[in-house]
């Protein structure tokens, strides 16, 4: 009898493509960036497995930030948008049933957080928190409002472009990723010290959500497409020799 086995083998994270730990224009990185070289070793099961979440975890409104914190009959303030896309790996394989969490400021650029000090108003119908699982083809979708830009203490007058924070699990702990989505055409993108930790315009483009008229809902919502790629798993399949042969 032939038995097929599979070995997981994840592509290395390309450190020349990701931001450097130390990016002095982003001041918080100065004392929070390790100085030594990272220790590299062949991944083990400890990195190639990871937590898995079931669809029973996800509530009906978890991916609808317009309504998930709104009072009955009310909704969050701001331009209504759909943010959608596909979660794939570097070999273009869709990643199904994988948890995506997002958080964002309200349409005035204000976060619902105890350390937040920006003077813009809170929206009583908006918390800025959402999550979903990708479907069997790796697709995901959120309904939300356009977050506002906001000022932040870094240089004397730094502003974040409108953005949504994304937390991605994949199916291995080694694929764990946190990143941000920016909005096509935002003039603040090129002025932002956090965006500028990215090393190329290509990298910035990869974190840009693009207006997609085919997905808009007439008289309801604009739509932005944002595909997410996580580390590729070069699964190697091989035939085991039958016992004793």
């Amino acid at each position: 009898m032939k038995v097929q086995s599979k070995i997981d083998s994840y592509l290395k994270r390309d450190r020349a493509w990701h931001p450097k730990a130390l990016s002095p224009s982003y001041k918080s990185s100065i004392y929070r960036s390790p100085q030594s070289k990272l220790l590299s070793f062949p991944a083990t099961q400890s990195e190639e497995t990871g937590p898995v979440f079931g669809h029973d975890l996800i509530g009906k409104l978890d991916n609808n930030l317009i309504h998930n914190s709104a009072k009955q009959g009310q909704s969050a303030i701001g331009p209504r948008i759909i943010v959608f896309g596909r979660l794939i790996d570097e070999y273009k394989r869709p990643i199904p049933n994988s948890l995506i969490e997002i958080w964002q400021a309200n349409s005035g650029g204000r976060y619902r957080h105890m350390n937040e000090t920006y003077l813009a108003a809170l929206d009583p119908n908006f918390s800025g928190c959402g999550r979903t699982l990708t479907d069997e083809n790796g697709n995901y979708e959120f309904s939300t409002i356009m977050p506002g830009p906001y000022p932040w203490p870094n240089g004397p007058n730094d502003w974040r472009p409108a953005h949504i924070h994304f937390s991605i699990f994949g199916d291995a702990f080694t694929q764990r990723l946190i990143t941000q989505m920016y909005f096509e055409g935002d003039p603040l993108i090129q002025k932002c010290p956090i965006v500028s930790t990215l090393k190329s315009t290509r990298a910035v483009e990869r974190l840009t959500g693009f207006l997609d008229m085919t997905k808009t809902v007439p008289m309801d919502s604009l739509a932005y497409k944002f595909d997410i790629v996580i580390r590729g798993n070069q699964q190697i399949f091989f035939e085991n020799k039958p016992e004793g042969s």
Partner: peptide, 22 residues
């Protein structure tokens, strides 16, 4: 060889308000 399109999405900081989402 992986074309840029299919390189991993680049990372960005979780920022100070990671708690809201996580």
């Amino acid at each position: 060889h992986i074309r840029d399109n299919f390189k991993e999405s680049p990372s960005q900081t979780a920022g100070p308000y990671v708690h809201i989402g996580c």
